[in-house]
Design a protein around this nucleic acid. Structure first.
Lengths: 226, 226
DNA sequence: CAGGATCCAATTGTGGATCCGG
DNA sequence: CCGGATCCACAATTGGATCCTG
C-alpha cells in the first residue's frame, strides 16, 4: 500500500475501513496475525498502519535517543492511533502517545515537545474490541483530529505539571494520578529498568522509563456522539 | 430550641455549628446518642434538626399517605439535609429527598411535585465522617441553597424520565442507573414489601417502595470550593 | 409506615506492570 | 531499546438492601 499523497486521500482511505473487520483487512493485505491474544498486543495497530500506507518503523534500532522520531505519515505530519472500544462504544484503554524524554531540555517545553507534535494531527481509528478473536473486531470510526484551543490548553497544563516536577528533581512525585487528559505512566517491560537524567543541580538521577498516555475519559470526548 | 423566625436567623444559627463536633452539639442540648454506629443511621440528622429548632416529625404516624408532608422549617419552606463527607471532603453517600408517591397524579408533575418543593430551599449541613465515633464528627459547612435554573432543569429532566416510565407501566425499567443528579432507589427495610399504583390502563400494579435520592457527584458541586 | 439516612457486595475504573516484533 | 499497545490486581464507585425511631 503506497503512502497517501495528502490528508484528504488519507481520510478517504481510512473511512473505507469503517464497517470492516480486522480479519478482512488482514486478508486484503495477504497477511495474518497470530491467534493468541497475548501475542497481538501491538499487532492490531501495526496492521492498520500497513493498511493505510504508514511508514514502517525501520529506524527504531538505528538511532538511540530522540533522533529517530517521525510521524506515521511524515509528509502529512499525521499520527495514526487505534482505540479499542468496549460494549458501550467507549475507549477500553488509555492511548500511548510517546516516551517522556529526560535527556533533551527542548523536549521539556510544550511548544517544542514531541508530545505536542505527535498530537497536532491524529488519524483516530476506533474498533469494537468486544469479540474475543481479533479478526472479528470491526472498525467503527475513522477520522482526522487536531486539538481545539481548549483541548490544547488542557494538554499543555497536564504536560507542564509533570515537567515542572521533573525540573525540580521530584521525579518520585510523578504518578499516573496527575493530569486530567494527559498522564504519565511506566513504560518498560520490566519495572527494574532505569533511565538517567540531569537534575536541577546538575546531578545525574535515575528513574524508570515512562511514557505519555491519554486517559480514556479524554479520548471518549473525541469520538462522534452516539 | 425555638424555631428560627426567618431564613437569616436560621443561616446564622447554622453557621455557629461549623467547627463544632456532634458530641459538643448533643451535650449543649443535654442529650446523647447511642454509641453503636449501627444504631445511629438517622440519629445524626435528627440531632441537627433539634439543634436548629426544626419541627419534630410528630405527625408521621397520624396520617398515612401524603397529607402529613411538611418541611423541617414549615414557615420558611426550608428543608434541612445533613451530608457525611469523606477524607477528601467529598460526599460519602447519596442524599435522601423523599418518597416516590405513586398514588396521586399531581405529585407526578414536576411543578407540583413534592420532590421539587423539598429541594426548593435546602439548608445543607456537611460534617466530616472520617472519625469512627459519631461524637467526634465535626461540622465543616452550613449554608442555604436554592437550585439555579440549570440545576433545576437537570433535576426536572431526571424526574420526568422516571415518572414517564411509571406512567407507561414500565416500573421494572426504573433503576438507580437513571438520572444524572436525581435517582430513584428502593426505600424499605425489606425488599419484599410492596406498594400499589394504578397503571396506564387503569389496572392495579405492585412495586417495591422507592425514594428519590441526590447522587454524591451532584451534591459535591453544591459544596464550597476547597 | 415514613422519615432520618448508612451499609456493603458487586461492578467499574485505573495505575502500574507487562508483552511482542524489529 | 522503542513503538505498538494490553493486562490485571486493587482501589473507587454505587445500586440495591437495610437499620432505627416515633
Amino acid at each position: 500500500m503506497p503512502a497517501p499523497r495528502d490528508a484528504h486521500e488519507l481520510a478517504l482511505r481510512a473511512r473505507e475501513l469503517v464497517g470492516r473487520t480486522l480479519g478482512e483487512i488482514a486478508a486484503a493485505l495477504g497477511t495474518s496475525l497470530d491467534d493468541d491474544p497475548r501475542r497481538t498486543k501491538g499487532k492490531q495497530g501495526e496492521l492498520l498502519e500497513r493498511a493505510l500506507g504508514a511508514t514502517p518503523d525501520d529506524l527504531a534500532w538505528s538511532v538511540p535517543g530522540d533522533e529517530g522520531r517521525r510521524h506515521d505519515f511524515p509528509s502529512l505530519r499525521v499520527e495514526l492511533k487505534s482505540i479499542p472500544l468496549d460494549a458501550r462504544g467507549r475507549p477500553k484503554e488509555s492511548t500511548y502517545v510517546c516516551r517522556l524524554s529526560l535527556r533533551e531540555t527542548e523536549t521539556l517545553v510544550w511548544e517544542t515537545s514531541w508530545v505536542r507534535e505527535k498530537l497536532a494531527n491524529v488519524l483516530w481509528v476506533a474498533f469494537d474490541a468486544t469479540p474475543e478473536d481479533w479478526w472479528d473486531r470491526r472498525i467503527v470510526h475513522a477520522f482526522l483530529w487536531a486539538p481545539t484551543a481548549d483541548q490544547e490548553a488542557t494538554l499543555r497544563a497536564d504536560f507542564d505539571e509533570v515537567v515542572g516536577l521533573f525540573a525540580r528533581g521530584r521525579a518520585e512525585a510523578v504518578t499516573a494520578h496527575l493530569g486530567t487528559a494527559l498522564q504519565v505512566r511506566p513504560k518498560a517491560r520490566d519495572g527494574s529498568v532505569r533511565t538517567t537524567f540531569i537534575g536541577p543541580e546538575g546531578e545525574t538521577l535515575a528513574t524508570i522509563p515512562r511514557g505519555f498516555y491519554l486517559r480514556p475519559s479524554f479520548t471518549a470526548t473525541l469520538l462522534p456522539a452516539r
